[in-house]
Amino acid sequence: MKVLVAVKRVVDHNVKVRVKADNTGVELANVKMSMNPFCEIGVEEAIRLKEKGIATEVVAVCVGPTAAQEQLRTALALGADRAILVETDAELGSLAVAKILKAVADQEQPQLILLGKQAIDSDNNQTGQMLGALTGFAQGTFASKVEVDGDTVSVTREIDGGFQTVALKLPAIVTTDLRLNEPRYAKLPDIMKAKRKPLETQTPDALGVSVGSTLKTLKVEAPAQRSAGIKVKDVAELVDKLKNEAKVI
């Protein structure tokens, strides 16, 4: 079984995000970038399926600039067999990314596609669902457990009321949630080996995909500063402030 796992290059989750002075976007110059945490979970799940003998090949794919090769090399160091970079400097929306991933899936013919449920930059939670609509594949979102049995994948997904388990016929798309697994760290020997693993570069034009966006960012602003909290002496004072100042009761 071939597994295609999508990864995204984002600002490292430990970095404090800063808005550009002209409010056109987020400052990326000289900022540490890394693989989206939810994508790391997807890569880890694909590697575990390979270690169990279920997956025969794991292919990592990323849509982004040349520098995104760094994140693909990380996926290769973690255990992916090869990687594909669809190189573009354009700022892509979820639909454009889904179209590109669909074109890659048409080439690779994977039985299972794994994606992080959302990226920590745009935070849209859309690409997996859009890819499912474009491919017509069955999909399980917010997966906290994935079990493959023959031509069926059982996905336990988190919903508002608890958990729901769905059985999907392969080929299928699964988006990963935080509790699915804990990603491993790449070992130094594996990092060195990853440099020799194949990394193919393509372009959206070569895949026949237009990346023109129908969305336009008007302005990006940092959230307003919160005022400092205060301490109250007793419950009576708290109730008084909630009633007369905050006016919430």
Score class of each variant (00 low, 15 high):
87 E>D: 03
139 Q>S: 10
166 V>W: 03
10 V>F: 04
99 K>W: 02
53 G>F: 12
238 L>D: 08
157 R>L: 02
41 I>W: 02
216 K>T: 15
139 Q>L: 10
195 K>S: 01
114 L>M: 11
248 V>Q: 11
233 K>D: 10
160 D>V: 12
224 A>Y: 14
98 A>M: 08
90 A>N: 09
196 R>T: 13
38 F>V: 03
95 L>T: 10
71 Q>M: 10
100 I>F: 03
46 A>W: 00
73 R>Q: 10
143 A>S: 03
54 I>M: 01
170 L>F: 11
88 T>W: 01
127 T>K: 11
233 K>V: 10
86 V>K: 00
63 V>W: 00
36 N>W: 05
131 L>G: 00
160 D>M: 13
192 M>S: 11
149 D>V: 15
237 E>K: 09
120 I>A: 05
207 L>C: 03
233 K>F: 09
24 T>Y: 08
176 T>Y: 15
147 E>I: 13
115 L>Q: 14
103 A>I: 03
148 V>D: 09
45 E>S: 07
191 I>H: 05
31 V>Y: 08
60 A>L: 00
85 L>F: 00
149 D>Y: 10
53 G>Q: 13
217 T>V: 14
193 K>R: 13
54 I>W: 04
249 I>Q: 10
87 E>M: 03
213 S>E: 07
122 S>M: 14
121 D>A: 03
46 A>F: 00
210 S>I: 06
119 A>E: 10
94 S>D: 08
202 Q>C: 06
84 I>N: 09
103 A>S: 09
200 E>N: 15
25 G>F: 12
57 E>R: 14
64 G>N: 05
126 Q>M: 06
30 N>Q: 12
134 L>R: 04
63 V>G: 01
194 A>L: 08
208 G>C: 09
198 P>N: 02
116 G>K: 02
240 D>P: 07
214 T>V: 14
228 A>M: 15
162 G>A: 02
237 E>I: 09
101 L>K: 01
249 I>P: 04
249 I>K: 06
129 Q>W: 12
212 G>N: 15
240 D>Q: 12
7 V>M: 05
3 V>T: 04
90 A>C: 05
214 T>I: 14
